[in-house]
Design a protein around this nucleic acid. Structure first.
Lengths: 337, 337
DNA sequence: TCGTTTTAGTATAACGATTTAGTAAAACGA
DNA sequence: TCGTTTTACTAAATCGTTATACTAAAACGA
């Protein structure tokens, strides 16, 4: 059941004007500060950036400048600097939808590293729509981002900036892919099920638009064959639609059950769909984990608190985001393309 | 159980140099394009922005300019424009942690509206640490953002830019708060429980650092009193720590149970903690919902797929984000402070 | 004392756009 | 035909920095 609470907006009283006349007109510019000190902007710039050219300027003058800068709370204008230096210290991030658990975890890792390095980033959600993807890539480039990070975004057109793809599998020139070791993931997952004695293993494949879908599926099939528990075609179902709720998994499991092909274990594409699948199994009178073992993927926080607790393969999403950011900044500072 | 899969990094072959000599040197500037056409940058600027001053310029010339601009894929440099116009079309967003379900939903709504209006935004997560909050606010201002949106962030210092707080309750000058109608939420939640016949109602209050905690708690107590089911002090527990997992709710419920004060319903601060609380109740031998009814808050996707399905008060977080963005842009375009 | 070096700066141009003020040539009017 | 208006532009300033080149004065050396 769901009860919807409404919301409202309330404004504070409008800001009172500062009575001090002192700084009536916004932030100080270098020129203004220089005028106040009776020096040229050049001198201030040299001192404030302690350029080697400021060597011959006496400490007394330097101090005067530093004191005044502090007093007037001088902050160099970032835009002007960017224009001059052709650096924006800004990246662009493309993701299907930032509010998805997957993307937001990766973004968390990206942000953590970027802020530490003095960078910010713009995000755009393309909802797997090619024309939006193209448009936003363009917009980000126009904003002069120094590089791009694409999260779970296949078929990215070869970009003009250095690019890192999180869970990318396209082999494009100039693009670095950060990927999971899917082979190892498959061995962990299937190995665990086999150890529990399962032989009739079903699987739910990801949506076609997910970067990992094909690779993971291929690897799972290979590993299954190698471990001699090959997954029957009738025991494969696939997620459809891009709902962020467990519903996709619920429906995929339903389709699987309709085929009446028996199985004792289910390997799902992610935790959210696993939760939905479990519900479908229960409704079909199957007990989890007594009748069917379910294994998820991702390790979202809710996984551990599901009832019963979900077994899952952890993807270090935050770490992958951090690594993507770290690598991209390295490429940028190497002047790499 | 959780099995950790490792990840790896793979680079594509490095980009081949374009063999065309045509555009060897990055994007064209207005000056470059003007030189190519034998016109002045001014003329191009007037035509491309179709300024009224371009009225007297013959269509033929205009066409020449437009064709060349298209041919060379001319894009005005955003940075240069920003410097001149003192507009960045960029906002700053402050949140405790972007990867939390709460913040990412709100961000989704913010993003949706901003992109539609040609804006981008920078985000920074302050983790409820005052010094980070201050530092990031400063950094965002230095980046020349045109406004700020603070999500679940109390005690924001009076900012120099127009600001909107999502779930803000401080009454600061120049700050707009987007808030839930907590009164209505409390009536919905408590009303539902009372209708089910509950009289001994327990509640889990939010962490002290959450914007909504105090207001919601106060309102719930008031409404409870009015509905004559006042919540006993012994039946109040509080979330602690900022883990994003249901664990906080699990622990809060444990503390509640230790007091051995009987109750038949539990109103929790959010869905995630509700899931944890249900686990604690189960471990204590209480059946949900037979022995204890639990009601959550937020309506996260997993709520509906919890077993049993969780009753919850929906917060229209995405809508709140969208509204915040919309209102802030309106204030900005009104030149408001 | 005169030439050189050092000191302590400054003037100018540049980044890439936009805006204001201007101008030469053509067209027009009486 | 001469003065005015219109046409079709352009020059220069500006946004706030930074980089390069330059200079006047002081100090130094022989």
């Amino acid at each position: 059941m769901r009860l919807l609470a409404p919301m409202s907006r309330r404004d504070g009283k409008s800001a009172k004007r500062e009575s001090k006349v002192k700084k009536e007109d916004g932030p100080v510019s270098l020129k203004g500060l220089a005028a106040h000190l009776g020096l040229s902007p050049t001198t201030l710039s040299l001192v404030l950036n302690d350029s080697p050219l400021a060597n011959t300027i006496p400490q007394e003058t330097k101090d005067r400048i530093l004191v005044a800068a502090r007093e007037f709370n001088y902050r160099p204008n970032f835009i002007a600097r960017s224009l001059r230096s052709a650096r924006t210290y800004t990246l662009g991030v493309l993701a299907p939808e930032i509010s998805s658990g997957y993307a937001s975890e990766v973004l968390g890792g990206i942000e953590e590293h970027l802020l530490k390095e003095g960078y910010f980033y713009f995000v755009a959600s393309h909802h797997h729509r090619p024309e939006l993807l193209k448009q936003y890539t363009q917009l980000l480039m126009e904003r002069c981002v120094e590089g791009l990070i694409a999260v779970d975004t296949p078929h990215l057109a070869p970009p003009a900036s250095p690019t890192v793809c999180v869970s990318g599998h396209d082999n494009a020139p100039g693009v670095t892919n950060i990927t999971l070791d899917h082979e190892r993931a498959a061995v962990l997952g299937l190995g665990h099920l086999i150890e529990l004695g399962h032989r009739r293993i079903a699987a739910i494949k990801g949506q076609d638009f997910s970067s990992d879908t094909e690779v993971r599926w291929t690897v799972i099939c290979e590993v299954a064959k190698r471990l001699e528990v090959s997954i029957k075609p009738e025991l494969m179902s696939q997620l459809e639609g891009d709902s962020p709720s467990p519903e996709t998994g619920y429906l995929a499991a339903k389709r699987l059950l309709e085929r009446r092909e028996p199985f004792t274990a289910l390997f799902t594409f992610n935790d959210v769909s696993a939760i939905g699948a479990i519900r479908a199994l229960r409704e079909a009178g199957l007990d989890v984990p007594e009748d069917v073992s379910v294994i998820g993927f991702d390790d979202i926080p809710a996984a551990a608190y599901n009832h019963p607790a979900l077994t899952t393969i952890k993807q270090p999403l935050r770490e992958m985001g951090r690594l993507a950011a770290e690598h991209l900044l390295k490429r940028i500072s190497n002047g790499a393309q």
